[in-house]
């Protein structure tokens, strides 16, 4: 399963370009000017201590947080421009949350088909066929008519991944997808992400699972104090960290 670390230039063209991204909550400067390019097919992990800006960075990529400064280009369009219809671009950016956020008022199947049908991407039959195929891939096909209330945490998160995939996104954003799970359920969710990555899906994942980040990533970003303090291949970051803060952080989490 170990993915060969490929040279960035071998990957596809630019998918997301972030320049000078700044975000402030009250008087707290969470992002202090982040620059980053994510290419098609790339798998990028974001690691770092809590409060370092990882999640805020990820949530800015699809404008769930409105940046205070800087620009974000997605497929060549500056989505921070007020005249851009962000809803259209969000359809192409799947997001998976720490707390799953599956819709409790809909069945598993409806969770998956609602957005593609409502937004006119698919007919009801097409969406249902796709939902069945995707749910089968993550082992939830037999749950298609049940409500999420009856699912375990791991099953909910797999459903959330399928729900995002049903919009056929160009990039998947994962915000600590296993942090709220019981330990015995982490594996099943990581397996789904691993499988997704192997299909070539462009992926940005904020995670505390260091082994997993090392295994799947083309590139690792270490964020601390609102900036990307260090970035490089998994080997660079995990075996030969140069930045003092990276060393200190990894020293604490990898014992």
């Amino acid at each position: 399963m170990n993915k060969q670390n490929t040279n960035q230039t071998e990957k596809g063209g630019e998918l997301i370009r972030v320049s000078g991204l700044k975000k402030q909550f009250g008087s707290l400067q969470v992002l202090k000017g982040v620059d980053q390019v994510i290419r098609k097919g790339e798998v990028v992990s974001v690691i770092g201590p809590s409060g370092g800006g990882k999640s805020t960075f990820l949530r800015c990529l699809n404008l769930l947080e409105t940046p205070d400064g800087g620009n974000i280009y997605f497929e060549g369009v500056d989505i921070t421009d007020k005249n851009v219809d962000i809803n259209l671009h969000r359809q192409k950016m799947g997001m998976v949350f720490q707390h799953f956020n599956v819709f409790p008022n809909m069945t598993v199947g409806e969770n998956v088909t609602m957005a593609p049908v409502l937004l006119g991407k698919k007919t009801k039959d097409q969406a249902l066929a796709m939902a069945r195929e995707l749910l089968d891939r993550v082992g939830l096909l037999d749950k298609i008519d049940t409500y999420p209330q009856k699912l375990s945490g791991g099953q909910k998160q797999r459903l959330a991944i399928v729900r995002a995939l049903a919009m056929e996104p160009d990039v998947m954003l994962f915000d600590e997808p296993t942090s709220a799970l019981d330990p015995e359920m982490v594996g099943e969710v990581l397996n789904v992400i691993r499988e997704l990555v192997s299909t070539g899906m462009t992926t940005v994942i904020v995670t505390h699972e260091m082994g997993f980040a090392r295994e799947i990533s083309d590139r690792v970003l270490f964020m601390d104090g609102g900036i990307i303090a260090e970035e490089g291949s998994p080997e660079d970051i995990f075996d030969h960290p140069k930045n003092e803060r990276t060393k200190e952080f990894l020293g604490k989490v990898l014992r």
């Binding site: 809803n87 409790p104 729900r163």
Partner: peptide, 27 residues
């Protein structure tokens, strides 16, 4: 209704009104 519900709906590309009608109000 949990804010995460709105965020999930918006992240799929639903606009504010669709999010209200299909996700928030039913709950």
């Amino acid at each position: 209704v949990d804010k995460g519900q709105t965020e999930a709906a918006r992240s799929l590309g639903l606009n504010q009104k669709q999010t209200m009608m299909h996700v928030v109000l039913p709950q």
